[in-house]
Design a binder for these strands. Structure first.
Lengths: 335, 335
DNA sequence: TTTAATTACGTAAACGTTTTCGCGTTACAG
DNA sequence: CTGTAACGCGAAAACGTTTACGTAATTAAA
């Protein structure tokens, strides 16, 4: 604190100009190796680190990226962040985190606050509460941005997603293979391509197997665990489905509880399957069949793409990167 | 991007000096309300937002805090971050996240990189792999810092923790009340006050009930799920404990698996209890009795303390804030 | 030998703010 | 009418970098 060690100080001690010091620190070709070494040694000795604000101001680079997501306390997103962090660290970048809480206004406010040079780029998984497509259509023109998992289609930006349609189709077939014919669908992310693709996979699999979909068997996600519990209990009592296909993790607890409260045995009376990155899925009672998304890899991949853009490297042809999810069969689907 | 809108631009359009604009934006008493309104209106119209780098450089304030934690993909920490974020947003601060992966070198490297004015303050939960006390003893002199959950004692800094000793004592008594006399301890965070306090609570409760502790019944955490599974299986086979008291969440999966593989029924043959913030604890097979820490509140409280320090408000007397954990009894302790 | 190119470094401006200091105007007391 | 505040604002320096440009010394080419 006391003895501010900055470039000027280094320059004075070494009797050279601050320009030379700056260039030496940045390993410029203009500076001789001898001088560079003198600078580097003294910098290390005095524990010099460049002032980020000054550096940002002058160079217009912050070496910082922002991650804008609905929540961090969520298995998928926290794993994604781990992947992002890993790559960011490799590149020497810092990571700012913003949670939108699925609030579209917060989402706009945060991202807007990032446009004045606070960060070099943004990684985001958009809020599902409302359609915010127009906003993002504008945003992608203003700052390097990569979408992951929750994306908007047809925007001029890189998108890292998973094979939602295919895996949902495959999962539905699994339920059918297990003898289910009345498969209820717990619908989340309805406003987003991911949610629509999952639902489409479910519907198409039903049709391919000659099962007529029924709107009565579809439950839309509501905000609040208790509400969903009520919804699912009503569903179970009124329409007696023989399976629950949950498209988002948030339905798991209410689904299990609802079955218990209604007195249904899993998987004998009803089978359950859910999109989820829960590490304890195998310990649930009974263990839960899940569609597990490669959350960590999604984070890594998205971050890699962003850094390619930031470093102006040509992106390998495609703007859409699709990773594979995996269906992990466990007791809750019982076969 | 094109038409950089900055203070100079505002000043030109309004035909006043940049000093006046700056002061108006900061609501200085020196400026008349009339002028302020003109500035504010134009700023809004042109979508002006101050350049953070310039502002930071001049004022030495970043409106940014850092959170340095072992992992974000962890129920406790991700909840803490939610709490921190909530408070930070109220104060208009940005949040940088750094994961140490329990690596003491990464821990030092990150925090050192924050000392050049990148952030105004730090919130941290220290790595448990080694003792890094000396480093922090120095660090707290250089930057406002608040510890939460995983702290070092006797440092001149605010510490937000939980009642580890008391709740561990209480939990052990609960196991004893359920008839257990041979209670194994799955030991984590051994290098930290939290880990030591939990263990002490366990030991003291045993003694108070006339049960002699045994070193054979203590298993230390190893890095890697498989290793812990092996350890616990050996423990079960060699010493037949009638309860497992796990001091950290990471033991839950290996503990459950070990019991299954060895053929022990929970809670009939053996009871299990663990520190944990797992939201699915009640859905496990059988549901898990947990000590649940108020993770969200810890984050909130820690952030509040940091902002008090940053705003030079006097801290209410005490440097140690202790929140209460809660013991949630479920099937795995079966009584 | 002369000229051109290269190397190694310095000067100074610039990035967009904040803030100190000073100055002119108005209001009011004496 | 003069002297003194108070008010409202502007000029300019400062924060610590980066970088365009200039220049002297050395080397290579002619």
């Amino acid at each position: 604190m006391a003895e501010a060690v900055n470039i000027k100080r280094l320059a004075q001690e070494l009797n050279i100009s601050i320009a030379t010091v700056s260039k030496a620190l940045n390993d410029s070709y203009e500076i001789s190796l001898k001088t560079k070494n003198r600078v580097w040694d003294l910098a290390r000795e005095l524990n010099y680190t460049p002032n980020p604000a000054a550096s940002n101001l002058r160079s217009n680079k912050t070496k910082t990226i922002a991650v804008v997501i609905p929540f961090v306390a969520n298995n998928f997103f926290s794993l994604s962040i781990m992947g992002i962090e890993e790559i960011a660290r490799q590149y020497g970048y810092h990571v700012l985190i913003y949670q939108t809480h699925e609030n579209i206004e917060a989402e706009k406010a945060f991202t807007n606050s990032l446009l004045n040079g606070r960060v070099d780029g943004i990684l985001t998984s958009v809020s599902s509460s409302e359609d915010n497509r127009e906003y993002y259509a504008n945003l992608v023109k203003k700052i390097p941005l990569v979408f992951f998992d929750r994306v908007y289609e047809d925007l001029d930006a890189v998108k890292v997603t998973t094979d939602d349609y295919e895996i949902a189709y495959q999962a539905t077939e699994h339920l059918i293979d297990c003898g289910c014919t009345k498969i209820a669908y717990l619908f989340g992310l309805e406003n987003l391509p991911a949610g629509k693709a999952r639902f489409a996979g479910y519907l198409d699999a039903l049709k391919a197997h000659g099962i007529a979909p029924s709107a009565e068997l579809v439950v839309n996600y509501l905000d609040g665990e208790a509400l969903n519990l009520e919804q699912i209990k009503k569903l179970l009592e009124k329409f007696q489905p023989d399976a629950l296909f949950s498209s988002i993790e948030e339905f798991i607890i209410p689904a299990y509880c609802a079955c218990r409260e209604v007195g249904l045995q899993i998987p004998d009376d009803i089978k359950i399957l859910s999109f989820s990155n829960l590490s304890t899925a195998k310990l649930l009672s009974p263990s839960l069949t899940t569609i597990s998304q490669p959350a960590f890899e999604i984070g890594r991949e998205a971050a890699k793409c962003l850094f390619k853009i930031l470093h102006k490297k040509q992106l390998d042809d495609e703007q859409n990167i699709i990773l594979k999810s995996v269906l992990i069969k466990r007791e809750s689907t019982g076969c």
